[in-house]
Computed example of a mutant assay.
Amino acid sequence: MFASGTISMMPSFLARLIRPFSSSTHLGLTPDTVAQKYPANAQLATVAAGCFWGVEHMYRKAFAGKGLLDAKVGYIGGDAKHPSYRQVCTGSTGHAEALQIVFDPEQVSYRQLLEFFYRMHDPTTLNSQGPDVGTQYRSAIFFYTDEQERIAKDITEKVQKEWWKKKLSTEIIPAGEWWDAEDYHQLYLDKNPSGYECPSHFLRKFEPLSS
């Protein structure tokens, strides 16, 4: 959301700021607890790629009925408890706008989800996506297991060499405490088809990565 220095984006940004001073809700899903609500083989993946409205929208379009069981936008990577959207927008909480995905690994692999991640945003820009600037818009992969960390590092190395051909800014770090974003952010672009979409969110046409 915030389009720094772009006057045409201002009304949309101001509309977001006048939302109620609500706080996020602690979801608390972990690899151990996700099976309480979803099938026993369900797994979690969490990524940050700029404005979470577009990230959720693109993942749902690509993987609905193809292994995506659920998705929530929220905040991760910071220190504050129950951060609000307004607080996160200041950059003072340390959180990233992120997407938490519940997926069926028999239908879609973690590797496929990460390859999509590197196609749908620009991982070379530090703390920014398109006109959105700030640490909350950073590129990051938050892993839950040693295996996810291994896969993330392997794909990132190949993506940097074979696709983007320049240094990536993407962080690969352990998943910490997750907070669901306020209700009005969930499925935002489904409910508001003309809502703001970050211009850096589109699928790039890259050749398949080497095995």
Rank of each mutant, 00 (worst) to 15 (best):
V102D: 02
S92N: 15
V108L: 10
L99K: 13
F103R: 06
G91V: 03
Q87A: 09
T90I: 06
E106R: 06
K81T: 13
I101E: 02
G77P: 02
S92M: 13
A80G: 03
P83H: 02
S84K: 03
L99G: 07
V88T: 08
L99C: 10
E106C: 05
Q100C: 08
V108Q: 11
S92L: 14
G94P: 11
Q100A: 11
C89H: 03
Q100K: 15
A96G: 06
V102E: 04
A96Y: 08
Q107Y: 09
A96E: 00
E97T: 07
G94H: 04
R86D: 10
A80M: 11
P83R: 01
A98P: 02
L99D: 00
P105S: 05
A80W: 13
S92F: 13
L99M: 12
V88A: 04
G94A: 09
Y85V: 14
A80C: 09
L99F: 08
S92H: 10
D104A: 06
G94V: 00
V108K: 01
D79H: 14
Y85G: 07
H95Q: 05
P83Q: 07
V102M: 12
R86P: 03
T93S: 14
Y85P: 11
Q100M: 15
H95F: 13
S84I: 11
I76N: 00
S92I: 07
H95W: 08
P105E: 02
